[in-house]
Simulated assay, not measured.
Amino acid sequence: MLPLNLVPCCRECNTAKLNLIRENGAPLYLHLYLDRLSDVDPFLVADVTVQSGVPEIEYRVEPTPAVPAHVASRLKTHFTKLDLAKYYQRRAIEEAGIQVQYVAEELADGASPSDLQDDLRRQAGYVAAIRGVNHWRSAALVGFANSHQFTSGACTGWLPQ
């Protein structure tokens, strides 16, 4: 076994990764013991839009300039090759349902979209304190907060009748 192939990941990602750890001589994946990433600089971004009353969440990786180029390259490859955008999106669907209901109730009680943005960012901070700023849920909550459509209650397609 190669030490560079000892990367903690879930079964699904480990199966996708197999033993392919290098391409053209360069490491493909992040190594959580060898590659240091900041605990405070977000690189995982969730873009949230609303189409026909339904929230859509798209994840992407956007490393900050503080991330060394070789690590940023592996970060992007890791994200792409393991199809983490799709994985995170599946996880975020349930969170979206919870937050859609929350937004609808708060708006009905007189909260403003600005109040909801602040509260969603506060929730993201709580998750980030435990899981990190680059956890899929932290990014989703920031994405919900940044979407004026979402915080204005445009997700009517997900509300119970």
Rank of each mutant, 00 (worst) to 15 (best):
K76D: 01
Q117R: 11
A128D: 07
G153C: 06
P27M: 05
K86L: 03
G53F: 05
R60S: 13
N5T: 11
L34W: 11
E23H: 14
C10P: 07
P8H: 01
T156P: 08
Q101Y: 13
S73R: 00
Y29K: 09
N146D: 15
E58S: 03
P55N: 10
L82H: 00
E105S: 11
I130S: 05
E12Y: 13
L2P: 10
D119W: 02
L120H: 04
A124E: 00
G110V: 02
G125H: 04
G110K: 13
L120Q: 04
W158I: 02
Y33D: 11
P63F: 05
A111W: 10
A108C: 09
D39P: 07
H135M: 07
G153I: 07
I98D: 08
P65Q: 03
L84G: 00
R122W: 13
V7E: 02
V100Y: 03
P3G: 09
E105N: 14
M1F: 13
G25N: 12
A72N: 01
A140D: 05
D109K: 14
H70W: 05
P27I: 03
R60C: 04
T77D: 13
A128N: 04
H31S: 14
R11G: 06
E12H: 12
A96M: 07
S147W: 09
N19I: 01
N5I: 05
E105P: 01
I21D: 13
Q123D: 06
R74S: 00
V67D: 00
R36S: 11
Q149L: 06
I93N: 04
I21R: 14
T64I: 06
E58L: 08
R74L: 00
D83S: 06
L75F: 06
S138Y: 10
K17M: 12
L44A: 00
E62A: 15
V103Y: 10
L159A: 04
G125E: 11
L120E: 00
S73H: 03
Y29T: 01
E94K: 09
A111P: 09
E106Q: 15
W136E: 04
R121P: 09
A139K: 01
G97C: 10
R60V: 03
V71Y: 02
A104I: 04
K86D: 13
Q117I: 04
L20P: 11
V50C: 08
G110T: 08
L32A: 12
P3Q: 14
L116D: 03
L34M: 12
R22M: 14
T64P: 07
Y33Q: 12
T77H: 08
E12A: 13
L4N: 11
